[in-house]
Design a protein around this nucleic acid. Sequence first.
DNA 1: ATAGGGTTAG
Length: 691
Amino acid sequence: MLRDARCPPNKYTFPFVLKACSVLQDLRAGRAIHRHAARAGLHADLFVCTALIDLYMKCARFVPAAAVFHAMPARDAVAWNAMLAGYALHGMYHHALECLLRMQEGCASLRPNASTLVALLPLLAQQSALCQGKSVHAYSVRASLHDKDGVLVGTALLDMYAKCGELLYARRVFEAMPIRNDVTWSAIIGGFVVCGRMTEAFGLFKDMLAQGLGFLSPTSVASALRACASLADLHIGKQLHVLLAKSGLHSDLTAGNSLLSMYAKAGLIDEATALFDEMAAKDTVSYSALVSGYVQNGMADAAFLVFRKMQACNVQPDVATMVSLIPACAHLAALQHGKCSHGSVIVRGMAPETSICNALMDMYAKCGRIDLSRQIFDVMPARDIVSWNTMIAGYGIHGLGKEATALFLDMNNHACEPDGVTFICLISACSHSGLVTEGKRWFHMMAHKYGITPRMEHYISMVDLLARGGFLDEAYQFIQSMPMKADVRVWGALLAACRVHKNIDLGKQVARMIQKLGPEGTGNFVLLSNMFSAAGRFDEAAEVRIIQKEKGFKKSPGCSWIEINGSLHAFIGGDRSHPRSPEIYQELDNILVDINKLGYQADTSFVLQDLEEEEKEKALLYHSEKLAIAFGVLTLSEDKTIFVTKNLRVCGDCHTVIKYMSLVRRRDIIVRDANRFHHFKNGQCSCGDFW
DNA sequence: ATAGGGTTAG
């Protein structure tokens, strides 16, 4: 069309065509039209220049945008706003602020108008710059700046207040607005959700519905669904699903993604999968939500399948996708997979991202490479609180309590304020290293020096610290002295320690408490029944299992795996499905003969069923972790460390046997269980039996 | 102007 010689494009044509390029983010076409306009002698036209700035800014080409801007003979407020909005769009706070100041300088001084503020306010919101936000508010009142009906400025203002945590002001602005639209409602509902005030968010959502369905948008439903996910309120979540379907919004991408994520977080992974399959359009967010859903539900292998499917469908993973996927490697302790993901992240240019580094650090720590973890920590461009916490936690699971403490002190030197999670990491690091006194001191300091009120999670860590360290009675008293009612997880920590220290009497007492509270979760059922078994009270043990079955808690079977040349070999107790099972079982029998000579005796108190002594020994001998290690002994050369992962905790007998194995087979063996790392070498374990 | 997926602890 531009080439029709009879009707050449003029200064009215170019801005519209450029606008189309901007919407499509078609930089190539935009550049061609830029050249075309220049040839037509329109390089200084106000409207053409403004449209060019808008186009370049949308495509994040700041240098050409600025060049056009500076070449303009005169600049009006629209041109200034295009620059400012462009910087704001890409979160460039300082550039945007500079624009704001410069436009008011000099003889051609221009006052900010409503569009200026609407572009500026989201930036202030993102920066939590409350003071500046307030002065913008004051200015808008003084200059009586209104866009049509004040909806745009009003919405941007209330959003800014909400994101700065000032819900009272947000609500006041909202109430004072004469006209509201769907965006206004979304902003106020979303504001309450972001601040964690879920009940009020639901209240506002209902208020909105009370005015009819005219304001209902996928955006406001998305916020409400996020509230459901964080409250684990499936009931309301399903109602919202129905509401979406009724209003014909169920095929909206944002709405679909929110639903998918809500179901996945509620543990309904099948529903999430079904929803995903039915979605007409899927984007990066849909795939990422499903990946993270599988990881959260412990199905790391399925997460990889989704990731592959995504690539096959040519959907590009972004930072959030990779941050969801990397924990799958951590979960599987699959170092080779993890290294692949690391490589992939480097290729994609995401390696400097803080959240990516955090995920990688965690992955390497959980895959046994605390050294690589630290390397990333040392070189990453910017650290946040999660980085410090992850590193401290990494040292913790490796039993490196001293290093964890040192890092915590270092954190103070870097002017990084510890948060509640930091102390959970720190205390549990002390617990894994048997540093009971030190852990108690940190708990004290947390409240008195750092002003952090202990939450239930801190009490769990403290009970674990005391009880694991053998101070069972003190742990019991500690629970009694809690300012809130201890929940099952607190008692569960004590019960686990009773099991390790074989204190049946206290264990029974704790078991009674847990029964009263409702065991909530498979782990406590297993602990409980194991306690009874260990005391030889098999009837009661069986009874617990029956209740467990009735309540529908499936016991996840003990499973161990080992990665050899990048592929995973998994074993469950007594499993003979592996092609090399005959050799593996023969090797274990040989090992048993060798270690019996050194004085090993099976600790049959760890066997759950009522069997004959000899059968009990066999049941123990073929525990999954022993099978995986034996496979490692057979396949790996002697200089290689055998690294095995187990989904549950290592049992006491296995712990003893593996110590002997490291001695008689002269192997370094690392076992990562549900709890921490055990490094076996020369008949010793790094955990010093604090496990 | 609003909004969907993501990293740490037990």
